[in-house]
Amino acid sequence: MARIYVPASVAMLRELVGTGELKPVSAVHTVTSWLRREAPGADEEDLEYTAFADAALASLPLLAGGAPRRIVVSADVPDERVAEHAEGTGADFDGDVKLKRVAAVHADDADAAEEVARALAAEEPDLDAVEAHVLDWYAPSEVQDFLASLD
């Protein structure tokens, strides 16, 4: 099994909860062979965080016109459904992510959402300010409560 990090939006998260499936609309991120070569000696947790952080950044373009909260869905999927890109942490994923495969959902809190909104409105966004915020962690069973808190 491969752990993938899916860049998402609140609307996509609602779809996951409603249908039990999420279709990634862009590359997913994972610990790739390229990343392992570029970071020799890094432990697995650091490699995973790099892939996760890349997914969080990749979620920004998905937020236009919606809730300004970066969302990353972490899921465990069959290895054969993940095709790594030549460089970076990006990968193509064949199919839908099933809710039962989701390990966790990560989302910006309200303070981070304000920073994300400023970045989305700016001609030249301050990505360092956005990335300074750590996404909150939610178990799959807590996602409906998170979504209800946004209403």
Results as ranks from 00 to 15, higher is better:
G41Q: 04
P125M: 12
V28C: 14
K100S: 15
R101V: 06
S26P: 00
A132C: 04
A117L: 03
L127V: 14
K98P: 08
P140K: 01
H85F: 13
L120C: 11
Y138N: 12
D111N: 04
D76H: 09
M1D: 13
D151M: 02
E15I: 11
I71D: 11
Q144W: 00
M12L: 14
A103M: 13
G20R: 01
A103H: 01
L63W: 02
G88M: 06
G95W: 00
V82D: 07
E45M: 09
A122C: 08
V130R: 08
A75P: 02
E115R: 08
G66T: 02
L22D: 07
P125L: 10
I4R: 03
V143H: 08
D126G: 09
L47G: 14
A139E: 06
T30A: 15
L99S: 12
P40H: 02
S9A: 12
E21T: 14
D54R: 07
P40E: 01
F93H: 02
D79M: 04
V82H: 01
E131T: 11
E21A: 12
T32M: 05
H106P: 05
A83W: 04
A104S: 15
V130M: 07
A113S: 15
D92H: 11
L35A: 13
A103W: 05
P68H: 00
D43I: 08
A119F: 07
R37T: 10
A113G: 12
A86P: 06
E44L: 03
L150F: 09
R118C: 07
K23H: 07
P68A: 03
A104Y: 12
D96L: 13
S149T: 05
V77R: 10
A8E: 01
A39C: 05
A11I: 04
V72N: 06
V25I: 14
D108Y: 02
D108G: 08
P61W: 01
M12Y: 05
I4M: 03
G90A: 15
V82C: 06
G90R: 01
D109L: 05
D46G: 09
E84A: 10
A64P: 04
A117Q: 14
E87T: 15
P125Y: 01
F146H: 13
R101I: 06
D79W: 04
G20C: 10
V25N: 10
G41H: 00
E124T: 12
V10G: 11
